[in-house]
Amino acid sequence: MTNRMMPGIFIVVCVAQLLAPVSMIYTHETTLASGKMFKFKTAPVDPADVFRGKFVALRFEDQEGHGETGVDWASLDEVYALVEEATDGYAHFTEVLLAPPEDLDYLRVKVSHTQGSRLSLNIPFDRYYLPEDLAPQAEQAYREHSRMGNRDAYVTVVIKDGFGVISNLYLSGQPILEFLRSQNNPEPTAIP
């Protein structure tokens, strides 16, 4: 490689290095801008990830769909789970398909295991990032709410063409940051 070629090749490498994050930004921004929003009920916990700051790990209450029997679902790299909003306002998985549907909302998922026609799905969202000091509080707040039998934690996910992006995490109907701020600084009650 001659020295004259070096800057040119270096610029090509730099463009490739930039393309990776830029394509991630583009995919997520277009989904957030033009996708359809669903609410998924969750169960947060709080592990630490040294590389990416702190986050609330997400688990979902509804992780099951139904699929044809006789198909080795767990061996497939990707399947398509139809998402519908139920009467309670939360998203539920209904049918799982081998090919993406045309006019319905769906998520690209993997099947972890099957039991007859019931398929256990690996939901492709597993974390919601929070400021370092708030992540432990978020977990504690969830536990307190759970103790009161008040399971009202959910995430909003924007879905487009099988791709989903988490837009927010809610506790008691409030975005998590607002909820934690209101817990830390409760508004003074009016003196009669």
């Binding site: 490739a16 990776a20 994050p21 991630m24 986050f55 597993d126 974390r127 919601y128 990032y129």
Partner: peptide, 25 residues
């Protein structure tokens, strides 16, 4: 940069694919 974009958009943690793209780049 890849990790921060992942954090910004709450991208699911996949250490293997993260390392793979990082090393290739």
């Amino acid at each position: 940069c890849i990790a921060l974009i992942g954090q910004t958009y709450n991208i699911p943690g996949n250490l293997a694919s993260f390392l793979f793209s990082w090393m290739l780049l």
